[in-house]
Lab assay of single mutants.
Amino acid sequence: MKTQEELTEIVRDHFSDMGEAATLYVQVYESSLESLVGGVIFEDGRHYTFVYENEDLVYE
């Protein structure tokens, strides 16, 4: 099982292909040891929320 830090790095790496991230945040109260819930805000103003669970990243 991966730590939240490892899950955060996986998510950060995925979003790095989409541009320069200004902020990546984790909603600790919705996350667990198995999943990471949060969002990313890019330098150009785009904002996505995400759920990373079971090696699957879903974002909108």
Rank of each mutant, 00 (worst) to 15 (best):
Y48Q: 00
S32H: 10
Y52Q: 00
Y59E: 03
T8N: 05
D17K: 15
L24P: 01
E5T: 07
N54E: 04
T49F: 11
L24W: 10
I41L: 06
V11T: 02
D44S: 03
E60V: 13
Y52T: 01
Y48K: 00
F15A: 02
E30H: 11
V26Y: 05
E55D: 12
Y48R: 00
I41Y: 09
Y29N: 02
Y59G: 03
N54T: 04
G39R: 11
V26T: 01
E20M: 13
R46M: 03
L24H: 01
D13Q: 15
F15L: 04
S16M: 10
S16P: 05
K2W: 08
T23M: 12
Y59V: 12
Y29E: 03
L33G: 09
E43A: 13
E9H: 08
Q4P: 06
E9M: 12
H14D: 03
T3Y: 05
L7V: 04
E6M: 09
R46V: 03
F15I: 04
R12I: 08
Y52N: 00
E53I: 13
G19I: 07
E30N: 14
E6Y: 08
D13R: 15
S31Y: 12
E6F: 07
Y52F: 08
V26W: 07
E34Q: 15
L33R: 13
N54L: 08
V28E: 08
D44Y: 09
L24C: 12
V37K: 12
S35F: 14
M1D: 04
G39Y: 15
T8S: 07
E20L: 12
E43N: 10
G19Y: 07
Q4R: 11
M1F: 12
G45T: 02
M1Q: 09
E20S: 12
E55A: 11
G45H: 02
Y52H: 01
V37L: 06
D56F: 14
V26R: 00
V58M: 08
E55N: 13
H14V: 09
M18N: 03
R12Y: 06
Y29K: 01
V58C: 13
V40R: 01
S16F: 09
N54K: 08
A21L: 15
Y52I: 06
D56C: 15
E30F: 13
L33H: 08
D13M: 15
N54M: 07
M18I: 08
L33W: 07
E43H: 10
Y48W: 06
L36F: 08
L57E: 02
G19H: 05
L36M: 07
D56G: 12
E55W: 10
L7A: 03
S31V: 10
D13V: 14
S31G: 09
S35C: 15
G45F: 09
Y52A: 01
Y52S: 00
E20G: 12
E30M: 12
E9F: 08
V51C: 10
A21D: 08
E55C: 13
L36C: 08
I41E: 02
E9C: 14
E5Y: 08
E53S: 12
I41G: 01
K2N: 04
Y59C: 11
Q27T: 15
D17P: 10
V11C: 12
M1R: 12
T3G: 05
R46E: 01
L7G: 02
A22P: 10
H47V: 08
E9L: 11
V40P: 01
T3A: 04
F50V: 00
D17E: 12
H14A: 11
E6D: 06
D17A: 15
A22G: 09
R46N: 01
R46L: 04
L33C: 12
L24M: 07
F50Q: 00
L7M: 06
L36P: 00
E5I: 08
L57C: 11
G19M: 07
A22T: 09
V28Y: 13
Y52G: 00
R46S: 06
F15P: 02
V28Q: 09
E60T: 12
L33S: 13
T49G: 01
R46T: 06
V58T: 11
Y25C: 12
K2A: 04
D44L: 09
F42C: 08
V37A: 07
V51P: 00
H14M: 14
G38W: 10
G45P: 02
E20N: 12
D13L: 15
E60D: 06
L36A: 03
S31M: 11
T3L: 06
L57G: 02
M18L: 09
F15N: 01
S35N: 05
L7I: 09
E30K: 09
Y59L: 11
E43W: 10
V28A: 11
S16I: 08
Q27W: 14
E55Y: 10
L33Q: 09
S31T: 06
G39T: 11
N54W: 08
K2C: 14
V37P: 00
H47C: 13
D17H: 15
G19S: 05
L33T: 14
D17R: 15
E60S: 10
E43I: 11
E20R: 12
L33P: 11
I10Q: 04
V37H: 07
E60W: 14
L57Q: 02
M18K: 06
Y29G: 04
L24Q: 01
M18V: 05
D13E: 13
H47E: 04
L7S: 01
H14W: 14
L7E: 02
V58P: 02
Q27L: 15
D44T: 05
D56Q: 15
H14P: 02
L24D: 01
M1Y: 11
V40D: 01
V26E: 00
E34V: 09
L33D: 07
V28N: 08
E43M: 12
T49R: 08
E34S: 13
Y48F: 11
E55P: 04
Y29V: 03
E53F: 12
K2T: 04
L36R: 00
V28L: 11
T49C: 14
E6H: 06
L57V: 05
S35M: 15
L57R: 02
K2V: 06
V40G: 00
L57P: 03
Y52R: 01
R12T: 04
V11I: 10
V11Y: 03
S35Y: 15
L57H: 04
S35A: 08
T8L: 15
E5M: 09
N54Q: 06
N54C: 15
Q27R: 08
L7W: 06
V37D: 00
E53H: 10
D44I: 12
T3C: 14
S35P: 02
F50N: 00
H14E: 03
E60N: 07
V40Q: 01
A22S: 08
F50E: 00
S35H: 09
Y48N: 00
G19R: 05
E43G: 10
N54A: 07
R46F: 06
E20W: 14
L36G: 01
V51L: 06
T3R: 07
Y52M: 05
T23I: 14
V40I: 13
H14N: 04
Y29L: 05
F15H: 02
S16C: 14
G45Y: 06
V58D: 04
F15E: 02
V58I: 10
L57N: 03
F42E: 00
V58K: 12
A22E: 06
L24R: 01
V51D: 00
E53N: 08
T23Y: 14
F15T: 01
S16L: 11
E60Y: 13
H14C: 15
G45S: 03
L36K: 00
Q4K: 10
V26N: 00
L7K: 03
V26K: 00
H14Q: 05
K2Q: 06
E53M: 14
T23R: 09
A22M: 14
F42G: 00
F42V: 01
E5A: 11
L33A: 10
H14T: 06
H14G: 05
G19T: 05
T23S: 08
E53G: 05
E43Q: 11
Y25N: 02
D17C: 15
L36Q: 01
L57D: 03
G19E: 04
Q27C: 15
G45C: 10
V40N: 00
D44R: 04
D13F: 13
T3H: 04
V26A: 01
M1A: 10
L7F: 03
L24A: 02
R12L: 12
T49K: 09
V51M: 06
H47Q: 05
E53L: 12
S32P: 04
V11P: 02
V40L: 05
I41Q: 02
L24N: 00
E60H: 11
M18W: 10
D56S: 15
V40Y: 03
Y59P: 02
T49N: 04
Q27D: 11
T49I: 10
E34I: 09
Y52D: 00
M18D: 03
L33V: 09
F15Y: 03
F42R: 00
D44E: 02
T49E: 02
Y48H: 00
V37I: 11
